[in-house]
Design a protein around this nucleic acid. Structure first.
Lengths: 139, 139
DNA sequence: GGAAGTACCAACATGAATGTTAGTATAGGC
DNA sequence: GCCTATACTAACATTCATGTTGGTACTTCC
C-alpha cells in the first residue's frame, strides 16, 4: 500500500492530480517540483539561521554577520539574495555613504521563519536527547 | 541593542548562560554548537523528504527509494545512517535472504518529522506565492 | 596619516555533498 | 539459464556550496 508507481515522474500518484488542480500545491516528493529549490534555500546551511535572526527584527548586513556565528560575507550575501529572490526577505538600501542596508522579513518570510524556528528550537531543546542516543549506540 | 560581541565565540550573549545551565539547550547561532550537525542532517537534501515519508509509516529501503523522487541508493543509505545515528530512525534488519530491512521513526524521530513536515507542507502550499514574488521581481 | 568600518562583488581555491558504476549472495519467476 | 529483486558498500567522478582573498569609495576615529 502507498507505493507510488512512476519512479522519477513529475507527479507520483500520491495525492497529486485532484488536489494540484484545485490548489496548485507543490509536491516535494517529485524530483522535478520547483518546491525543491525553495526547500534548498530555506534549509541551506545559513538560510535557517538568517531567518531565525531576522524574525527577531530588522538587521543590517554586518550585524547579521556578527550574530550568525561562522558565516562568511560571501555566503551571507548569497543566502540573503536567495531569500530575497524567493520573496522572503526585504532589502532596503539607503543611498548614503558609507552604505546602509536593512534586511527584514516580508509577511511571507515571517511565516516561513516561524516554521524554521520551530524546527531549530526543537533541535536546540532536544540536543541532549540526540546525544544520548549517540552515546547509547557507540557504547 | 541585541548585538553580540564575540565573533565566533562558542556562546554569544543571546540568552545563553542561565538557560543553558538549566536545560543544556543548544545554541544554533554559535558556530561550534553540536546542534549544527543535527540541523545539517535534518535539513540535508534528502533528510527532510525521508522523514516525511517515514512519518507515513514503516518503509523498506527500495520502497523509500521509489517514493522519494530522484534519490540515489548511495545517498538514501547515507541519509538513513545519519538519521539512525542521531536516534531519529530505527533500522530493523531481518536476517533472511534476500535481505529485508525495515525503517521507521523513533519517538524522537516522530517529533522531528512533525516539525520538518510542517515546513515542507508550508512550502508546498505557498509555492505559488513564492513564484508570484519571483515574477514580480523579474517580470 | 593610518586604521577601521560599511556592504558588498569578482576571482580563485577547496571541500563536502552528491552522483555513477560495479559488485555482493541468494531467491524466485519465466 | 537469465533476469530481476533485495539492501547495501567501495571506488571513483563531479558538482555545488562554501571559504579566502583582494578590491571598492567614502567616512570617522585615533
Amino acid at each position: 500500500m502507498n507505493v507510488s508507481i512512476g519512479r522519477a515522474a513529475p507527479h507520483p500518484g500520491r495525492r497529486g492530480r485532484r488536489l494540484s488542480r484545485r490548489l496548485r500545491r507543490g509536491d516535494l516528493l517529485a524530483a522535478a517540483c520547483p518546491s525543491r529549490e525553495i526547500l534548498r534555500h530555506l534549509t541551506s546551511r545559513w538560510g535557517v539561521l538568517v531567518l531565525m535572526v531576522l524574525e527577531g527584527g530588522t538587521h543590517r548586513f554586518a550585524q547579521l554577520r556578527r550574530t550568525v556565528g561562522g558565516v562568511s560575507e560571501r555566503m551571507l550575501a548569497q543566502t540573503l539574495q536567495w531569500l530575497e529572490g524567493d520573496g522572503l526577505v526585504l532589502r532596503v538600501a539607503l543611498d548614503v555613504v558609507p552604505p546602509h542596508v536593512e534586511y527584514s522579513l516580508t509577511p511571507l518570510g515571517r511565516e516561513a521563519a516561524r516554521k524554521v524556528r520551530s524546527l531549530a528550537d526543537w533541535i536546540e531543546v532536544n540536543l541532549h536527547r540526540v546525544e544520548a542516543a549517540r552515546n547509547a549506540r557507540s557504547g
